Structure formats: structure tokens, C-alpha cells
Computed example of a mutant assay.
Amino acid sequence: MSGLATMEDSRALIIERLVGDSGEASHVIGAGRSLAERVVSPLQKRLSGEIGAQVTIDLRAVEVSRTTEAREQAGDNFAMTVVSSPVSSDALTLVMDARAVAVMICALFGGDPDQAVTPIQRDLSPLEADVATLVFEEIAQILNGSGKRSLDLRLPVPRAMSGHEARRRVLRDGAAVRIIFGLSTPTESGTITVMIPQRVLLVQRNGPGAAGEEEGSETDWHERFSEEVKRSAVTLEATMPLARMTLGDLALLQAGQVLEIEENAQGRARLSARNKTLFVCEFGKLGQNYTVRINQPYDAGQDFIDGLMPG
């Protein structure tokens, strides 16, 4: 297993580890809004015509966010599913709050649209989760698109999770665009949140109005990083391996005891930021100041192999 081929690859990997792929905010929001606006009308027709639910769909917000914030506006009871694609295990995260689920249940099972909808203040039932899955499937199919600009989602969507499972599901952090749709009757409304990682939205669809355009080069993609992200300050930490010892030896250590540093430890220092290892370095000294010289980008795969066969 070899290291990164070029410094450009190394730089891209470091940015991804620290903040996730992130585009210029105005460009991201524009791409997200262009996508969302094309969804509203077809989704309205499918829910009202094919499914028979007399509800209204409207676009409420498109904003830059993080994928971990998908559930923050959904309250305690909600339905959620995560859809994968060949380029991302979380290409689409859909969250439907309890009010939206109640609206759909009422619309599908003959509730009077002019009467108040009873709110759901408990974990969703299996039937309610199935209804949420039905809505998620319709949204995902329309968002997926077709041709070169398709998100290439793996459909059908996984069955919606709810309750403890949905609240405890770990979402991978990363820059995303959040699209919020309203689902309503004359007396009640709820929200459906769609989270799309920016790397999926911008790379797969190349932004708004990209039909017929050639795929952007990797250089073009890097130019989209906002100046704010590039200027973000991080704390660098350099650590040097000390020695290997058994747990028994570790338990016998006492205050004041001097430990010997391995002979080649100085050349195996690691430079990290935000608990992410970035480079393999070498400690040194320049005048009265200690220094760290970068030797090569950190290769996690090679480090794993080396750990299996310690010297």
C-alpha cells in the first residue's frame, strides 16, 4: 500500500479529514434550491394523484448545514432513513417529523382535512413508519433524476427507522445542504428535511444549469472551497512514540520514574489536528527552537499493516 501520489491529493485528503468537502455557500444554496424547486410540483402530483393524499407540498428553506444536524428540528418523535449511492454511503438523509407523519396518516385514511389533526406524542407505530417510508420513496425517486445528472441513489429506500433506533443512529459529519419541505392540510403542517452532502450535490450534478456542461476538473472543484474555510484556524499537535511495554509494566510505573525513548522515535513523529493524523514527521532543533520536519503524508493503511507486524 503506497502513500498519496501527489501533494494535491494530500491537500484534498487533509481538508476532507478536517472539515469535509465544502463549496462556496452561495453556489451550494443555488444548486440545492434549483434541485428542490424541480421536486415540488412532481411530488405534489404523486402524493395527491397516485397516492390519493390531499396534502400540500411547499419549499420552505434551502440552507448550508452539516449532515449531523439532520434531526435537530424534528423533535423527539420522527421517522428517518439514509439512502446510499456508489459515491457515498449517506448520499441522502430524509427526516419526517411527527406532525408530517400525522398529516399523511390523516390524509391517507380518510381524515377530514378541515378538522384538527391529533399530534403524535409517542414513538411511531410500524404502520406510521411504513407511511413515512412511502413518502421517502417518492421524494428519493424524484430527487434521483436520470442521465448524467442523476444522483444514482440505491433504490428503493431503506425502511424508515423511528424511536430509539432513529435517535441513536450515528450520522457521519460533513458539509451538506439542507432542504426543508412543508407537508400540510388546512389545519396542520409538518416538515420533511432532506440532507444532501455537498460533495454529492456539486460533483454529481455540477450545480444549477449544468445540463450539457462537461464535468468539472478536480482543480475546478478545489477552487470552490470558500475563503472562510481556508482561513479556519486549527491547532496542530506533534507527538513522538515513546516505547512499547506490557500492561503489567504500565501498572508498575511510579511518579519520578524515567522512561527510555526508542532510538528511532524522533523520526516517527506524527502531526495531527482535531484528532486526525495528517503527516509523518521528524523532530529536530533549529537554534533554540524545536522543529518538526514533514517527511510524508500519513498513510492509515500502511500504518495498520505496520501495526500487525511490529518491529
Rank of each mutant, 00 (worst) to 15 (best):
residue 20 G to Q: 09
residue 188 E to D: 14
residue 141 Q to G: 07
residue 19 V to N: 13
residue 78 F to C: 01
residue 208 P to R: 13
residue 100 A to T: 02
residue 46 R to I: 14
residue 307 G to T: 09
residue 45 K to S: 14
residue 242 L to V: 15
residue 194 V to N: 03
residue 116 A to L: 10
residue 9 D to W: 00
residue 132 A to M: 05
residue 216 G to M: 13
residue 64 V to H: 09
residue 42 P to M: 03
residue 241 P to S: 11
residue 300 A to P: 05
residue 204 Q to A: 15
residue 127 L to K: 08
residue 86 P to T: 05
residue 104 M to P: 09
residue 289 N to G: 10
residue 186 P to T: 00
residue 6 T to Q: 00
residue 309 M to L: 14
residue 189 S to K: 11
residue 295 N to M: 11
residue 311 G to A: 15
residue 305 I to F: 08
residue 270 R to G: 07
residue 62 V to S: 08
residue 165 E to N: 12
residue 46 R to H: 12
residue 90 D to L: 03
residue 26 S to D: 12
residue 24 E to P: 01
residue 60 R to Q: 15
residue 152 D to C: 05
residue 135 V to Y: 04
residue 221 W to N: 06
residue 167 R to D: 06
residue 217 S to W: 01
residue 230 K to L: 15
residue 188 E to P: 00
residue 148 K to R: 15
residue 303 D to R: 11
residue 100 A to I: 06
residue 256 G to D: 09
residue 186 P to G: 04
residue 160 A to T: 09
residue 97 D to H: 03
residue 303 D to C: 01
residue 63 E to P: 04
residue 268 R to Q: 12
residue 89 S to H: 12
residue 82 V to W: 08
residue 279 F to V: 08
residue 214 E to C: 01
residue 300 A to D: 05
residue 141 Q to L: 14
residue 293 R to D: 07
residue 199 R to A: 13
residue 247 L to E: 05
residue 156 P to G: 03
residue 153 L to D: 06
residue 20 G to T: 05
residue 7 M to S: 14
residue 40 V to P: 08
residue 95 V to S: 06
residue 216 G to F: 15
residue 204 Q to K: 14
residue 59 L to C: 02
residue 111 G to L: 02
residue 100 A to R: 01
residue 126 P to K: 01
residue 147 G to W: 01
residue 39 V to Q: 02
residue 111 G to S: 05
residue 263 E to Y: 11
residue 100 A to Q: 03
residue 184 S to M: 00
residue 35 L to V: 10
residue 259 L to S: 08
residue 25 A to L: 14
residue 242 L to M: 11
residue 105 I to V: 13
residue 29 I to A: 04
residue 139 I to L: 14
residue 285 K to F: 04
residue 119 P to C: 12
residue 276 K to Q: 15
residue 304 F to P: 00
residue 171 L to K: 02
residue 45 K to A: 14
residue 145 G to W: 06
residue 278 L to G: 06
residue 37 E to P: 06
residue 124 L to S: 01
residue 62 V to C: 10
residue 191 T to I: 05
residue 18 L to N: 09
residue 231 R to A: 15
residue 245 M to D: 03
residue 253 L to D: 03
residue 84 S to Q: 04
residue 236 L to K: 07
residue 176 A to G: 11
residue 99 R to G: 08
residue 257 Q to T: 04
residue 135 V to G: 02
residue 50 E to F: 11
residue 142 I to K: 11
residue 79 A to E: 02
residue 85 S to G: 13
residue 278 L to A: 09
residue 236 L to V: 08
residue 11 R to H: 10
residue 170 V to D: 12
residue 288 Q to Y: 01
residue 202 L to Y: 01
residue 271 L to D: 00
residue 65 S to E: 07
residue 109 F to Y: 06
residue 34 S to Y: 12
residue 46 R to C: 10
residue 42 P to C: 05
